[in-house]
């Protein structure tokens, strides 16, 4: 008999608004991403001084994950994120720094963020998670592989919980949708429910 898993909590960061389990926890008139997320960092009392050195994708991922992990004692949590733009937002910055011979200034501090899974490393450091990380890239949000993958990790007892979702940042367009899958929770963990939460949250 296949055990049923549940969605324990979920959050969304999109269109100048941050919500947790459907309720708005932060809203801003700020239309640019970096000042918006900085304001959110302060208002939501996120404690991670390295925040200010991170690239935009990691900032988005850190704020979103902190909402769900802040008060969690369980540390055996696998991380499975996906997006469309991978790290292209930062890739373009690195590319710009090497494009012209006269203005050639590649920086290790930028280059290290030219991998999408770096944001998983930041979440792992912040929350002391020695667990599994995986980063997938799709052309658009896809619930199917995330649900199959999270179910598999839990069923094979690779983790007690899985932090899953969509973490896309591309030229000022940002969209974060994260949720925690666990044995107990508020909704049944299904493709239909994940799609519904993504469409409506």
């Amino acid at each position: 008999m296949m055990e049923k898993y549940h969605i324990e909590s979920y959050c969304r960061i999109k269109d100048q608004r941050i919500s947790l389990n459907g309720a708005t926890v932060f809203e801003s008139a700020e239309t640019n991403f970096l000042p918006f997320i900085k304001e959110a960092y302060k208002t939501l009392d996120t404690q991670y001084p390295k925040f200010f050195k991170m690239d935009a994708l990691s900032k988005l991922a850190l704020i979103a994950s902190d909402l769900l992990l802040k008060n969690m004692t369980e540390k055996n949590i696998a991380l499975v994120l996906s997006n469309r733009a991978a790290s292209l937002d930062t890739d373009r910055r690195h590319q710009q720094s090497i494009e012209e011979a006269d203005h050639y200034y590649p920086s290790p501090a930028v280059f290290v963020y030219t991998l999408p899974n770096i944001c998983l490393g930041e979440i792992s450091i912040k929350h002391r998670l020695f667990s599994e990380n995986g980063f997938f890239v799709f052309e658009q949000f896809r619930a199917d592989p995330l649900v199959d993958y999270a179910d598999g990790l839990l069923k094979m007892q690779r983790a007690e919980k899985v932090l899953c979702g969509w973490m896309d940042l591309d030229n000022e367009k940002y969209d974060a949708f994260l949720y925690v899958v666990a044995k107990n929770g508020i909704f049944t963990h299904s493709k239909k429910k994940i799609n519904q939460l993504y469409q409506t949250s």
Partner: peptide, 19 residues
Amino acid sequence: EASCNDANHISGPSRTGEG
């Protein structure tokens, strides 16, 4: 197979080889 994060640093490997 298994996969574990160091939870230590994004560009420097762990000094204890933790992950």
